[in-house]
Design a binder for these strands. Structure first.
Lengths: 344, 344
DNA sequence: TATATACATGAAATCGATTACTTTTATTAT
DNA sequence: ATAATAAAAGTAATCGATTTCATGTATATA
């Protein structure tokens, strides 16, 4: 691949490379006449600068790294995070930054995530959807590379959080307003997000004077209909079964739907359920799933915005969490308790 | 961000930079003793090479670009393509290549996709899920940058294709084997993929001695339940309505399900449907959707493999299409026709 | 006319590596 | 002991830019 360089332009114009560089970069100490000549010649020759040469000299790459593996190894195929990624990408590109994935490779060798960042002179990393306890992730989060995380708080780092505690509280309050008192919660595996949601659930239950019962709180894997199905079955077999079940997310809600159908119950007449995430699925299910819709795209955009800010203001990075509120989507899967009694 | 360079090592060891470089790169003209000293010192100082300096000199970046926008602008959030991306990423990284997204930016300026590739010295591009008629995409596909496309054929370029024609044929044959003769096809908007599927549908219908009726072939948008719902409603209102409807994809199948439910019909007792893609949704729907599952992850991996081959063998690139067969997933949404008659 | 100032351009160092070529040192053959 | 050869290390050019500093020319001031 033959490439035109600044030197080709300088030769063709009979000027020095430094003049060409200055003309192309808008320095003031080049006459209008030569600047025009240079720009015109550059266009004519189809000149494209070399990002790597420039990076070498200026120490700027405009490359943002993404770290993107979840506990289930869904990675990029995870609905929520593919929206987040989409948001990061568009915001970053609008600001002249490129997106690339961090990995553990340097040619045939295995290196650490941090080393990969340094090797490629990545200017900042967005950590999403990752096992935060992984020592390499910890190392990266504690390094001198600007880092912004999503739905996790690293010490002295910027982050974007969905408003899990309050969104959950709002959901519980809504369900309660529909007359439910026996509200179960199948939560996901332990993580910052999960703890916040549990907090929202427990605190709001108490606030509403509702009993928080141990057998109403079960664990399941996120985005895993199977484990959620099993948990749902357990709840249905309880002596005093709940009238409403809150689920870890919309995808796993399918597992609940199956278990409920199999038990011969109807949603929402016999039992109510609510999901979480609101990414596409909820709109497709039948009955339409009442859920908390997270603005994943916006979360991504805010993360990119914050990261870029922290890259460009490295001396005073912003570290206050950016909290993005979710939206309660009232659909069909939560019904009034009254109806449920009647229907029997 | 202070970085250790090859020069720091050379100073500390009292050797020249070239010796250090050679030692680190496994050249033979360095004594074992000095090599060990150098490697040890590098480790001690935490030396990480500078990918950009190296790229500048060697003209190799090991960066693979991804082009990834679809007609619906779902982009990364598109189920099928997020799996493809996942496959590309893992295969590329296993071979020491990095993944980055192509865009139209150079800082504040807008440049062409090809210019972006050249600017960043991207070694090859994987074109997935893109309007192939976009002049900039055409330009890229006709350039000297190695390109591999997915589900589209560019002239003299490698590509990975799902086996749309044959997979569709298999689906039609299966549906026919269940007794269906009045098989409708709601297809997606015009594209290489769509044309292949239509071909598979039409040819197999003829082959089976079935009539190909114009009013049984309607167009809808991909992954759009709404337009598919409208098309389904049209089919249901026909005087002589089909007993089975083939749909553009699994997501839009939800539109069909809604239309059918609203018409008071049951799947598969009153009418059968089949989807396409087989990415998660089919397993979650109720009744479980009979569909053609595409191995999107494998498609991505094959695309990366082919692209890397063509990068490393630029003189004789492989241009024969790599065809990845889909898998017919027989579930519950297609029933025998007999049953349908009885159920009335 | 001589001098100061502004303007335009060029020379050269630099970023961090790689690599062809040269020089030095050690080893072997004569 | 000397020449020939092999091994090990160093010199310097290079990749494609940016940027500091120096130089030369034109204009303004005294």
């Amino acid at each position: 691949m033959i490439m035109i360089t600044i030197r080709d332009i300088s030769r063709k114009c009979g000027l020095s490379v430094s003049t060409v560089s200055k003309a192309l970069n808008g320095y003031s100490d080049v006459s209008e006449k030569t600047r025009n000549l240079i720009i015109e010649t550059a266009r004519e020759l189809g000149y494209i600068p070399n990002a790597h040469a420039r990076a070498l000299k200026t120490n700027r790459t405009y490359n943002i790294g993404i770290l993107f593996v979840d506990d289930q190894n869904n990675g990029l195929t995870h609905q929520f995070f593919s929206h987040v990624l989409n948001g990061i990408k568009s915001e970053a590109e609008n600001n002249g930054y490129n997106i690339t994935f961090i990995n553990r490779r340097w040619g045939a060798q295995t290196i650490t995530l941090l080393q990969n960042c340094k090797f490629r002179r990545i200017e900042g990393v967005c950590i999403a959807c990752v096992e935060p306890d992984d020592p390499e992730v910890q190392q990266l989060a504690a390094s001198d590379v600007p880092v912004v995380s999503i739905d996790h708080i690293f010490k002295d780092r910027g982050c974007v959080l969905s408003d899990n505690r309050n969104d959950m509280a709002e959901l519980v309050r809504y369900v309660h307003s529909m007359g439910h008192k026996k509200i179960a919660y199948i939560h996901g595996t332990d993580s910052y997000v999960t703890r916040q949601r549990i907090k929202g659930y427990v605190e709001t239950m108490k606030e509403l004077g509702l009993e928080v019962r141990g057998e109403y709180m079960l664990e399941s894997l996120y985005t895993n209909p199977l484990t959620t199905r099993i948990a749902t079955e357990k709840l249905l077999q309880l002596e005093d079964r709940p009238t409403c079940i809150l689920l870890p997310d919309d995808v796993s809600a399918y597992g609940a739907v199956e278990a409920i159908r199999e038990a011969g119950l109807r949603i929402p007449y016999d039992i109510s359920i609510a999901g979480y995430d609101g990414v596409l699925f909820d709109r497709l299910m039948s009955p339409r799933l009442t859920t908390v819709r997270q603005d994943a795209d916006r979360i991504g955009r805010e993360a990119a915005k914050l990261l870029i800010y922290n890259i460009e203001n490295a001396s005073q990075p912003r570290m206050e969490p950016v909290v993005i509120k979710g939206e309660l989507v009232i659909a069909e899967s939560v019904g009034p308790v009254l109806k449920q009694l009647v229907s029997c």
